[in-house]
Structure formats: C-alpha cells, structure tokens
Design a protein around this nucleic acid. Sequence first.
DNA 1: TTCTTTTCGACAACCACGTTGACCACTTTA
DNA 2: TAAAGTGGTCAACGTGGTTGTCGAAAAGAA
Lengths: 156, 156
Amino acid sequence: MPERERWGFELPLLLFAGFRSLIDQLHTELADRGHPELRPAHGFAMQAIGRDELTASELGRRLGVSKQAAGKTVDRLAALGYAERVADPADARRKLVRLTPHGQDALMLSGTVFERLRGNWADQLGPERLSELEDALETVVGPAAFRLDAAGWFGD
Amino acid sequence: MPERERWGFELPLLLFAGFRSLIDQLHTELADRGHPELRPAHGFAMQAIGRDELTASELGRRLGVSKQAAGKTVDRLAALGYAERVADPADARRKLVRLTPHGQDALMLSGTVFERLRGNWADQLGPERLSELEDALETVVGPAAFRLDAAGWFGD
DNA sequence: TTCTTTTCGACAACCACGTTGACCACTTTA
DNA sequence: TAAAGTGGTCAACGTGGTTGTCGAAAAGAA
C-alpha cells in the first residue's frame, strides 16, 4: 500500500533511521546484560575479530582503516576487557589480538539480540514484507552489503 | 521472491550498506560539481540550517549536540565557505548562522541528486517494490525517521 | 649466506567531532 | 533593580581517524 509520493532525500533518512534503531536497541539490551560500556564502533571491530587471532595490521585491513587506527581500537577494547594481545611464538614482530571470554560473550549476545529484533520487525511487517525488504536491499547494494568498514565513516 | 533464510545480524548491515551507498554516490557527484570538500557530516548540519537564520545554540538543539559542538561545526562550514555568521541587530548576544549561496547551491544540488539516485533504485527494483521498502521502513521506525542528529552518532 | 625488501608495532603530530565546566556579556523576568 | 536565563567562547579532554618515521624481525633474491 504505497501511501504517498516520496522525496528522494527521505530514502537515506529512512535507511539510517532503521539502522540506528536496531543498533540503539542492541546497545540498550547489551547495557542491561553486563556490557554498559560497549559502543557501536566497538561492535564492528569485535565482529571483525570474531574467533580469530590476528594482528592489528590485519584487523586494519578488515575494517578499512590504517594499522595505527586499528591498534588504537585494540587498545580501547583491551582497556575495557573485551580483547587482549598475545605474543606470536612463530614471529617475534607480531602480537596477536583475540577476544577475551567477555568479548566473546558480548558477540554471542549481540547475535541473539539481533535475532529477536528481526523478529520484532517480522511481527510488525509480516515475514513476507520483511524478506522482501531484505531482498530489495541486497539487490541494490550487491555484495557490498556485508562490509565492516563502517566506524568512523562519517568523518572521513 | 525470498531467496534464503536470513540471520538477524544481516538486517542492520543491509540497511547501513544502502544508506552508505546513497551517501557515497551523492558525495561523488557533489565532488564532481564544485563541492569536493563536503563531507557526509556537513550535509546534516546544512540540512538543519536550510534557509533559516539561527543561532549556534539552536542548531545544536536541532542536531542533538551541545552548543559548543554546533559552534565548531559552524566554524568548519564557514572555513569552507558554506556558512557565515551575521550579528543579530535585535540581540547583541546572538550571532545568526546562515548558508552562503555556495551552501544553498550544495543543498539544492543534493536534493536533485537524491531524486536521481532514488530513480536508479526504482529502475532496479520497480517503483512498487521501492515504495513498499519505504513504507515498511516508515512502519518500523515511526516518526523517528527524519531526525537529523546523525553525525557523530557512532562514537558517543 | 648475505643483502635488500617487506612487514609489524610503536611513537609523534595532527585533524574532525564530540563532551563538561567555567566565564562574561546581554536580555528577560520577577 | 536584582536575579535568572540565554548565547558565545575558551580550555581541557576523549575517541576515532590520518600521515610520517623508525627499529626490529622476517622473507626473498643474489
């Protein structure tokens, strides 16, 4: 049921409002469940680390930022107890970054919260309209959909 | 045509990818048309100013940031030639911010570019699917859709 | 094996964008 | 007219980026 004529400038605002709505709800939930200091930017970095052990340089590549910026991000995650650095026995230059159990907990919790939030949208829209929305977005953005280099994107 | 089962975490990434795709294309176009220094964050501030003459404090309220932050944003826009401050003859405390002709040009150009980008999406999806996408998003985000307090939202 | 190139991590300086707190000037209101 | 509120600015700081430089360690080539 198309409701009225839309201006072009509304489309980006609607997309951003949807994105922000989900992320804000996620962090409200995370704060209630033992992760009050976690910020949206941290989530992208932790997602990029996942269960891997990788160098700050490699993390920078995944996030689309310099190795120095990635190193600072790791510093902040480490200060909050979400990540830690361990020496690489096979290469004395490298220090491998990995999530702590606290960080893995936050990541798993985020996954379950996102499932529930998607369920809320499905309740409001019906499963078909939600699937159509997702399919339409994937059609227009193509394979660029699942990039993680989002943090700090506004300023560039 | 629902293509496959979706994970909850894909939804925010799809929304953000769509948003970023539009904004990136906008700024590519703006750069080609005489506005190469304009950044995404500037757009929200200029949209909040529009054709008004307002104080930095009022701008801060519209953008959801402190008056000091709004003042710095105006400094940057002014340094780039997009905004200027004029004294308010009716109130010696106030300095009114307004867009320069260069700033108004950028704002009008953005509007026409967004119309064309929406047209591209309509070509790819068909007008009905695009309208359904917009309506679905408005349904789930409600009146929060058209807030302008987006810049700097990642860090907080 | 030695020399050269590459890579990693760190440091420094800087910029964009936000925050609080403090302060002064001016306007409004009680 | 005194008190309260508002507007602009300065300072200090935090976060998340950038580039440039550097030394140590690894990898590749002669």
